[in-house]
Design a protein around this nucleic acid. Sequence first.
DNA 1: ACCATCCGTGTAATCGATTGCCAAGGCGTG
DNA 2: CACGCCTTGGCAATCGATTACACGGATGGT
Lengths: 336, 336
Amino acid sequence: MGRVTIRDVAERAGVSTATVSRALSGARPVSPSVLETVTRAADDLGYSGNGIASALRRSRTDTVGMVVPSIANPFFTALVEGVEHALQQAGRQLFLCSSRSDPDLEAQRLRSLVARQVDGIVISPVHGIRSREALAWATDQLPLVQVDRYVAGVDSDWVGVDDDLALRLVVDHLADSGVTSAAFISSTLTNSSTELRVAGFTEHTARRGVAVRDVLLGEYSIAWGREAMQRLVAAGPLPDAVVCADDLIALGVLQACAAAGVAVPADVLVTGFDDIPYAALSDPPLTTVRQPQDDIAEEAVRLLSAALGPHRAPPARSALAPSLVVRASTGVSASG
Amino acid sequence: MGRVTIRDVAERAGVSTATVSRALSGARPVSPSVLETVTRAADDLGYSGNGIASALRRSRTDTVGMVVPSIANPFFTALVEGVEHALQQAGRQLFLCSSRSDPDLEAQRLRSLVARQVDGIVISPVHGIRSREALAWATDQLPLVQVDRYVAGVDSDWVGVDDDLALRLVVDHLADSGVTSAAFISSTLTNSSTELRVAGFTEHTARRGVAVRDVLLGEYSIAWGREAMQRLVAAGPLPDAVVCADDLIALGVLQACAAAGVAVPADVLVTGFDDIPYAALSDPPLTTVRQPQDDIAEEAVRLLSAALGPHRAPPARSALAPSLVVRASTGVSASG
DNA sequence: ACCATCCGTGTAATCGATTGCCAAGGCGTG
DNA sequence: CACGCCTTGGCAATCGATTACACGGATGGT
C-alpha cells in the first residue's frame, strides 16, 4: 500500500518539504536543478499527494457536489454529464449524489457535501416546500445553484427551462392539429417545474379553447405513466390528446396504449417532455419538448464559478428557451 | 458563511474540544449533562463539522469512488444505483466519475480518487490493455473491485456476469427458433466482457451449426447499432438473426430496421444484452439477456468491505448467472 | 480505612500539505 | 567597494478534528 508523503520525497531529494510543495505545485519558482531532482524523486516513489491534507490547509477541495432526484432518469444523466464536462474545463471534479426523490435523503446528502467541504453545490431539488430548509441552510454555507426545478425562498441562483413557453408550444401544436380535449399526466411533487407545467397546461388549453379532461398526478416514471393511462382507458371516452410532464411518463402511456389496443396517434395524441434519447425510439416515436441540457449545465457551472469568486452578486434566475420536437405520436407519419 | 469549528462549540459549551468530539461522535461516553450542553451548543451554532479535517486525522473518508465508462448508459446507471444503495447501508458515500470510455481520462480519475483518499474503488474498466497500468497502480494503493468488465493481470477482485453462459442462452434460443445464420454487432473495445461475448458467440454458433455472417465492431451506442444495421442491409441478403452485445446497439438496430422497412422478427430476429428499462418499450420489444445488476452491485460492495478489513484475502472472481428475457424481437407475439 | 479500579475530562501531539516570514547568497548600481 | 534588491530555500505555524496519555475524583472490595 502506498504511503508516500511529501516528507519522503523531500528526504530523497535532499530538500525541505516546503521546496517539494513549491516545486510540484508551482506556487513559487524553484531552480531548474532542484525542480528536476524533486520531480525525479516524486516519480521514483510514486508520490501522489494527499488531497485531504491539501484541502484542509487551503480550505478548497476543487470539487463541487451535485444532487439530483434520480440518476436513472436520462434527463438528469444528461444534465450530470453536461455539468461534469463543464467542470472539467475548470479543473474541478464532480461529487454526484442521488436524493431518490426523498427530501430527507436530500437533506442528508447536503449535510454530507457541506461536511466534505465541497466548493459549491449544483442541485435539482426534490420538493418545493420540504426541500426548503436544507437548501436554505446549505446556501448559507457555500455557493449553490439550483437547476431545472427551483425552490422559492432560497437565496440562490437558478437555471432551467421556460416551462410556460414549453407548454405553450405543446398546446399550440395540439390545438393546431385539431385537438379539442386533453388530459395531463404529471407528478404529485410540489416543485416549481411540476407546478409551472400544470399551470402552463391549464392556461394555454384555456387560451386555445381545449377542454381539460383530467389532471392525473403520480410520479416521474414509466410505471406511473402506464398506470395513469390504464385509468384513462378504464374511465371511458378518451380525450383527443394526453400531455405528459416528462418522457418517462409518456413512454409508459405509449406502452399502456399498445397493451389496450389504443392507436397512437389515430385514437389519441401523446406528448412528452425532455427529449431523452429513447423518445425517438418508441412506438410511435414521441413528440416532445427538447430541453437545452448542455446550455443549462454550462450556465449552472458559469454561475457557480462566478459565485466562487470574491464578489457577492444578487441571485440570478435564468430560464432558457425549449423547443418542440414533432414526431409520429402527434400525427406526423413515421419516416426514416 | 458558516465557519463554525469545534473550538467554537467547545467554548460555548464551556468544555474542551476533546469532549465535544467525544460527545458528538460517541467515541467515548460523556456525562449526560455535558452531552446535553454540547449538543445544544452545536445546534445553536449550526455546527456541521469539517469532514476534511476528520478524514485527515482518521485517514478514512468513508467514501468510495466509482468509475464507469459512461453514466448515460442505463446499464451502468443501474449498477451505480445498486452500489450507492449498498454503500449507504454501510454508512459510506459514493464518489462517482465517468471515464467516457477513455483510458487516459480513466487514469486521471483514478489518480484523482487516490489523491482524495477514498477508502476504496469500484471500477468498470474501459480497456483490457490500456487500462492495466493505471488499474495496477491504484490496486497497489487501496482496495479495488472490478465490476462487469475485467482487466487481466491486475491483482484485484472482480464481479460480473457469466458472458459465456449468456451467449449460450442467446444462441440456443435462436437456434431453437430455426435460425441458421447470424451476425454479431459489438464494440471494438478490447476488454473481457466484449471479448468473452464475441468468443461465446463464435463458440456457441459453431456448436449449434449456425453460420456466422458478420462480426461488426464499433461502440456501445444507439448510433453505432443503427449504422451497423444499415451496413448489413446494404451488404445484401440478411442473416436470420442479429445478435447485439448490448441493448443500446440493439435499439439502434431496431431503428435502422424500421427505417429500412425490414420487419422484426419476420425478416430478421434481433437480440440485445443487459435488459435496460427501454428494452421492453421498443418496437418490437427486445429479447435480451438480463444481468443481475443488484446482485453484482451488492457483491462488489461486499468484496470491498471485506478488503477494507484487516485481512488480506486472495483476489476473488465471481461470475453471476444471467437469464434470458424473451420478447417479440425474436418471434413471440406481442402481448400485455 | 485503604488501595485498586474506573469513569469522565483535559492537555497536547498528530495527520500531511501549504505558506508567512526570514536568511543567505547572487547580482546590479551608485 | 558598499549597499540594497531579488531570488531561492528552510523553519515553523497552521488548517480542524481525533486520540494517546494523564489526572482527579468517585466507587467498590476486602
